[in-house]
């Protein structure tokens, strides 16, 4: 961690032993990251039938990317989802949620009315049921996942270590006397 990379060899840094954590962590991450992402998608999609939903699933999806960041260094995560893509997905999730709310007005009803369930109710206890609740879940999942991934990237990439220890030591000494 903490090494400067030239922009050309960003593809090879997955197997660079200088970056990230030890080999054990990297190997386990390589096997597990897909399953964590898949579990997050499952939690989002089945949020209206089983425990979970957009919030929990979104945080799990963000956790998959954060695990990647911690194990391989920030370049490995950023080449899968860069910061601009993350912010676009963030806005997309919020806009999708708002559009679903506006469509309720368009189809004759109040804001946020469940218009799909009102017009064509699906079969209960199946995946395609409950109207626009699964769609809202997907929107919330995208929004929460990318927001939390972005805040982690901000906190870890723009981290600047300031060496001002000398001044503090002087002040502490002065306070002690």
């Amino acid at each position: 961690m903490g090494q400067k990379l030239t922009p050309g060899d960003s593809r090879s840094n997955l197997y660079n032993p200088q970056l990230g954590m030890t080999l054990i962590v990297k190997t386990v991450t390589r096997w597990v990251k897909g399953f964590i992402f898949l579990f997050g998608v499952y939690i989002v999609l089945y949020g209206h039938l089983t425990p979970g939903g957009g919030f929990a699933g979104g945080v799990i999806i963000a956790g998959a990317f954060i695990l990647l960041t911690l194990a391989f260094g920030k370049e490995a995560a950023l080449e899968r989802m860069s910061k601009t893509v993350a912010s676009e997905f963030d806005s997309l999730g919020a806009l999708m949620f708002l559009m679903l709310a506006w469509l309720g007005l368009y189809f004759g009803g109040p804001f946020f009315v469940n218009f799909i369930q009102r017009n064509l109710p699906g079969k209960r206890f199946h995946l395609f049921s409950a109207g626009n609740i699964p769609l809202c879940n997907i929107a919330i999942g995208i929004k929460v996942g990318t927001s939390l991934f972005m805040v982690f990237i901000i906190l870890s990439v723009l981290r600047v270590v300031v060496k001002k220890g000398e001044r503090r030591m002087v002040q502490m000494k002065r306070r002690g006397e």
């Binding site: 949020g47 209206h48 039938l49 089983t50 425990p51 979970g52 939903g53 957009g54 999730g93 919020a94 949620f97 708002l98 709310a101 946020f112 469940n114 369930q117 109710p121 699906g122 209960r124 206890f125 049921s129 409950a130 109207g131 609740i133 809202c136 879940n137 919330i140 929004k143």
Partner: peptide, 23 residues
């Protein structure tokens, strides 16, 4: 609402304004 999970049906249907504010 047709959703078996009542918590989801509350945060996304009955009280969706709350979720909009959360976002």
């Amino acid at each position: 609402t047709g959703a078996a999970n009542l918590v989801t049906s509350i945060i996304l249907d009955y009280r969706a304004y709350d979720t909009l504010g959360e976002a």
